[in-house]
Design a protein around this nucleic acid. Structure first.
Lengths: 191, 191
DNA sequence: GTCTATAATTTGATAGAC
DNA sequence: GTCTATCAAATTATAGAC
């Protein structure tokens, strides 16, 4: 459960980078090996199969992502600020990292994933929706809105994952901001 | 430019089905050949390279999709009805076909696509946004909304592409409907 | 932990007979 | 148009030396 350091950590870093650019079927053990300066056979020492490596990458990604979001009920942070933090996490993937959200890309190709990897992607979405629903349920700005918190949480997740896909394909970062600007529609349906 | 029939058409059908389930790197010429009952060498007769096949699949998909949407300015059809038609097209991919939107999946893995395929995906998104913006600009229900029509068009496209990813990964069709139910937030910001 | 060597399979693609 | 035959390269993975 502890985050691997050393070569194992480097391999996870490289795999995450490649998966977030080219998808699960878009990188090989040789790519990773060359990237971290060992031979592909040595990668198998750290991660016996690609499925296990993929699951480890997704698990670490989810843990980091949720840890960065923090406690959705933290009384020190207003719901609006938490939502801004959420949007900023996706924006950073696009603008700073020039990458997809790992699970947005893996989710798109979910039918071609080993079961263990698909399960991790599912978990990521479930945790994201739970976090968002918790934030949206907090009493604050505007009214609670017509749609239940879970529906609005799902919509925000889908909107931002889709925003990355569209903005990256159109090669226009501004597209993300245009889309993200509509998130307030869900946060405060009264407007 | 004419839509291929016969074996070429069958190959396109098979390739589209596979690409919408497993992505561009998730199917091979041999898969397609077995599917349509020929040998993989014969597939190359119809489509010399995988990149050309991929581009042809995406182009045919876009043409069909836009043709199905119809004229966004058709005075016989209300803007609301056109938006419903748009949402229904995505819903059909999920519920009836059990597939992704082709360009939603390809867009997610855009960095691993041959340039000609990526260009077709870009075109699909551009045409979709233009169609949606035309519908949203028509005078009708509610007010024009705060956000410009293009921003709302991008948001609807992103929302629905993301909805397919999330619903398929969570294996819950109802998730799509929950998300799609929020589309009216963009159509009529006044509620 | 990393290496060499290699197995076993799959991939996109071509040449040439029919 | 489709076939057989084949290629060169790439893939995941294993065995065993160091």
């Amino acid at each position: 459960m502890a985050t691997p350091t050393g070569k194992a950590g480097e391999i996870l870093d490289s795999a995450e980078r490649q998966a977030r650019r080219r998808g699960y079927n878009g990188f090989s053990f040789r790519d990773l090996a060359a990237d971290v300066g060992i031979k592909s056979a040595s990668v198998h020492y750290h991660f016996p199969t690609k499925a296990e490596l993929g699951a480890a990458v997704a698990q670490r990604y989810s843990e980091r992502f949720m840890a960065h979001l923090g406690d959705p009920a933290d009384p020190e942070v207003a719901p609006d600020a938490l939502l801004e933090r959420y949007v900023a996490a996706f924006r950073r993937a696009l603008v700073r990292d020039r990458q997809m959200c790992l699970c947005g890309l893996l989710g798109a190709e979910v039918e071609s994933l080993p079961p263990k990897v698909a399960a991790e992607v599912r978990r990521f979405f479930e945790q994201n929706v739970a976090w968002l629903a918790a934030v949206l349920s907090r009493p604050n700005r505007g009214a609670p809105g017509n749609e239940p918190a879970e529906a609005r949480a799902l919509a925000i997740l889908a909107l931002l994952e889709g925003a990355l896909v569209v903005a990256r394909t159109l090669k226009r970062d501004a597209v993300f901001d245009q889309i993200a600007g509509t998130v307030t529609s869900f946060a405060a349906p009264d407007g």
